[in-house]
């Protein structure tokens, strides 16, 4: 496969995943913002969303305020912000368009439709109801994209590169989300339950669609260290760091099989997975959650570079 095509597929996967993450983040934030400020709601929620999207510097530079209107526009429709849902979808579609013959008709149509539907919402600020509708639309379209890819794409390099981008981006998103809120996840001696942080935890679970999953896995009320455990170390949880790395290793192995030999990216990914497998949540807290997450994000970036290097992007 041409390296350019591989790079396009990989970035297609990344952009789609990022757009999906932003949708979920905005949805959860709208919900959190409905609570009183004392519960972490109101405008504090919007500031938090910007930090969870890891775009604080750019947002500050844009001179906007932490209000629903400003943040909603910045993360959803702003065509000048390369990290908005709109920009992500546009990039995803451009990548897909140059790959037309590598994608099945359904896969292409799904991403094309997502882009066309989003364009109907324009590029200006919207009211909250329209924003909700927009997020719903995009989420549905992206589910259709995933479904089309999953159902119809041949299981070969085309598919593996796209999924590889998805998993790497997903790991990055989850790690940043956790890192932003790491302080409220630390185990404490105080009684949990009525804590004000409760809504922050459930919001976080909602962003990664894990509110129900949490109950299934732990059969317990929401406890912060378990939230961290779920999102970092539980392989059953599709957005957990360990699940992402299991996927990454799997995809890289498949690619290596086609290429005939594994490379530095395969070794880096496997080492990353083994580190996660050898870690318990207690050890992780002893080491320091923040430090752990920062190191993870850096290693994840290094893996991205190694993939680009290995496949000559």
């Amino acid at each position: 496969m041409l390296s350019r095509n591989a790079a396009n597929l990989y970035w297609l996967g990344r952009y789609v995943e990022r757009a999906d993450y932003l949708c979920r983040l905005l949805e959860a934030t709208i919900r959190l913002a409905a609570l009183p400020a004392s519960h972490g709601g109101a405008d504090g929620a919007w500031e938090s969303a910007i930090r969870s999207a890891a775009v604080a510097d750019r947002f500050a530079a844009s001179g906007r305020r932490f209000t629903e209107a400003d943040v909603g526009h910045f993360l959803a429709l702003d065509p000048t912000h390369p990290g908005s849902i709109r920009s992500c979808l546009e990039m995803a579609r451009t990548n897909a368009r140059s790959l037309r013959t590598a994608l099945t008709l359904e896969t292409w149509q799904a991403i094309n439709t997502a882009w066309l539907e989003l364009q109907r919402f324009g590029t200006e600020e919207t009211d909250p109801l329209t924003l909700m509708r927009l997020l719903d639309t995009v989420k549905q379209a992206l589910l259709a994209f995933d479904g089309a890819a999953h159902r119809n794409q041949l299981r070969e390099a085309t598919y593996w590169f796209m999924r590889l981008g998805t998993s790497l981006e997903r790991a990055d998103n989850t790690a940043r989300l956790l890192d932003h809120k790491y302080h409220i996840l630390l185990p404490r001696t105080e009684r949990v339950g009525g804590s004000l942080d409760y809504f922050q935890w459930t919001t976080m679970l909602r962003v990664v669609s894990a509110n129900t999953a949490y109950r299934w896995v732990y059969r317990d009320s929401v406890k912060p260290w378990l939230v961290a455990d779920l999102l970092i170390l539980k392989p059953q949880m599709p957005r957990s760091l360990i699940a992402c790395y299991e996927d990454i290793v799997f995809y890289l192995d498949r690619l290596a099989r086609e290429r005939g030999r594994p490379g530095p990216a395969n070794r880096l990914a496997l080492a990353g997975l083994q580190r996660l497998q050898a870690t318990s949540i207690d050890e992780l807290f002893q080491e320091g959650l923040h430090e752990f997450l920062l190191r993870f994000i850096a290693q994840n970036n290094a893996l991205g570079d190694a993939i680009a290097e290995q496949y000559l992007f």
Binding site: L2, S3, T101, A157, Y311, L312
Partner: peptide
């Protein structure tokens, strides 16, 4: 390209070294 089963390349996918034309592929 699709019907012939050959790669559709752009200039940036190609390079010449030692008087031989190569395309950059994942392999």
């Amino acid at each position: 390209a699709d019907r012939m089963g050959i790669e559709l390349v752009e200039g940036s996918d190609l390079f010449v070294h030692d008087d031989v034309l190569f395309m950059r592929t994942t392999a």
